[in-house]
Design a protein around this nucleic acid. Structure first.
Lengths: 211, 211
DNA sequence: TTCACGCTGTGAAACATTTCACAACAAATA
DNA sequence: TATTTGTTGTGAAATGTTTCACAGCGTGAA
């Protein structure tokens, strides 16, 4: 089982490598990828070992081979079908963002309460009413969900998703979801992120402990 | 200097405590806050020690006192003025999200290239053209920036922000920004987040190493 | 062929974070 | 007052992650 931090870095490497490949490079050294991704060379080499990607002492790593190794770790063998709940600004941003981005991921259905949005197709994804959630995710065999509703609804939506058979959730809400074991939840908490920036940006007016 | 993880948890505790307070509770035990935030009680107690929040062995922690302690750690003494660059779906979602949420944070200006958006006020925030960025953030004395533009623009925008005097950036783009020392960057990478969910959601079709 | 170079792969050290486990204590009870 | 109960605060152990540092190797130069 690979640690979460490592998975995050692998995901980033892959996107960088896609670009590197577009530029026509075929080999890359660990210190170069380190620079591009903001890490130390030793870290990059460790990460690549984890996905069993071999390097060559004189040429570095074969870019295509690296991408293959990362793919075989990160991607499941089949296409992953995802449901998005909450077609507000954030929901639309997520849909738009992923449009054709990764071939192994597909937003197969979106849900909202607002009847003006229901039955439209937004960024290639059909929008259903929330009442249809259970039926649709079962019929479409969806196992992953993204929650982009207002905080107050998040708990309820999470329950619906889990009840419909979803096994992994990306939650953009700060609400801590109570979820049965066996269901994985990843949280993105925008408020926390801004507050981190505020804290770590030394604006010279806070007395922090010396180190 | 408090570690990043701890800051993230404190931010979460604070939001939970705001709710707890609304419900009329005045005291709370570490194991209760742990449950509500998805942590272990010992972790919660350590975190509260870090912000010098004293507890009482029989009643637990005074909720208001806790909030005060967290405030004095997370918030700077003055209101923080923030610029948001990129008024697309994601940008609007961020603006909307923060509308009156935290008194110490204010989105003082937004920027976009699209002339249809310029000079409008969106979620209480005036939108300027990107060409005005430097002037406006200097005049408004803005030290924090949020980047919600397409990936390809991120590097350029980051340079503009830094050049204008911004010291902390929240970057929603997967582009690794090259930034001078002294400027803090926090990244939110939506693609990585989804890929983490895909990986850690055991859909039974990947051979993971036994542990 | 031999040497010098610069890289990979990795054991071990360093560092960071979480969790355990328990002494000390405040309140409630008798 | 003495006893019981359940919590805080924290040293120390456990665990997790990053970084160092170097042996070993392939390549190119002489």
């Amino acid at each position: 089982m690979i640690p979460e931090r490592t998975i995050g870095r692998l995901s980033l490497y892959r996107r960088i490598l896609d670009q590197v490949l577009d530029q026509g490079r075929t080999y890359i050294f660990s210190h170069e990828l380190a620079k591009l991704s903001g890490n130390k060379p030793a870290q990059v080499r460790r990460d690549l070992n984890v996905v069993k990607c071999p390097g060559c002492a004189s040429k570095g790593y074969d870019v295509q081979e690296m991408i293959r190794c990362i793919d075989s770790t990160l991607d499941g063998p089949d296409k992953q079908r995802i449901a998005l709940v909450g077609v507000g600004n954030l929901g639309r941003a997520v849909l738009h963002y992923f449009l054709g981005r990764r071939k192994k991921l597909e937003f197969a259905a979106a849900f909202d309460r607002d009847h003006d949005k229901v039955n439209r197709v937004i960024h290639g994804c059909r929008v259903y009413h929330i009442d249809e959630l259970n039926d649709v995710i079962r019929k479409e065999n969806i196992r992953l969900g993204v929650i982009t509703v207002p905080v107050s609804e998040a708990g309820h939506i999470a329950d619906l998703l889990v009840h419909g058979g979803v096994r992994g959730i990306l939650n953009f809400t700060p609400a801590p979801l109570r979820i049965p074991p066996g269901v994985y939840v990843e949280n993105i908490d925008i408020t926390s992120a801004i507050e981190k920036v505020v804290y770590f940006t030394d604006l010279g007016n806070r007395e922090k402990e010396k180190e």
